[in-house]
């Protein structure tokens, strides 16, 4: 993980985060977000009423996992400044999900060192779940 803005180069890859969400994790995420939507915990409702193959991984959980991949990479000196995601596909428990990205740019803005990232969540078959972008601020070397 980079300690300083100067440690990052365009093209650097975020270490991918691999997660296989379970129905238990989905339930805990519903509880932690006070979310009663049955498509996330009631399989009978999700399958028989709404026509999904199983309960659904929450979009905000996918986003949180993608942000986790970013902040794991940027480390404790990094600060998430901006985060943009789009929901493109549904994910289901038991599927292997991958969250990663790469550095697209590095710029100084008003004295701050900002890293522009392109990020994505996907299934192991390559299905795009969540494209996005992130901006992370890192301290500049010697600027303390």
């Amino acid at each position: 993980m980079p300690a300083f803005f100067e440690d990052v180069a365009v093209g650097d890859e975020i270490t991918p985060l691999l997660v296989e969400p379970t129905t238990t994790q989905l339930f805990f995420f519903s509880a932690a977000t006070y979310n009663g939507h049955r498509i996330h915990y009631d399989r009978g409702w999700a399958v028989e009423v709404e026509g999904y193959p199983s309960v659904l991984v929450h979009g905000p959980l996918q986003a949180a996992l993608l942000a986790r991949a970013v902040t794991d990479w940027s480390g404790p000196s990094g600060r998430l400044v901006s985060f943009r995601t789009q929901n493109r596909a549904s994910a289901f428990p038991g599927e292997q999900l991958r969250f990663g990205g790469s550095v697209e740019g590095a710029r100084i803005d008003d004295g701050r060192g900002l890293i522009d990232l392109v990020v994505r969540g996907e299934k192991d078959d390559g299905t795009l779940l969540m494209p996005g972008t992130a901006v992370v601020e890192l301290p500049r070397c010697g600027a303390r």
Partner: peptide, 16 residues
């Protein structure tokens, strides 16, 4: 404790 429960549900044990 509420945001820590959320982080744990995400599997994100970031010490920050």
């Amino acid at each position: 404790k509420e945001f820590q429960r959320w982080a744990a549900a995400v599997g994100d044990r970031n010490p920050l």
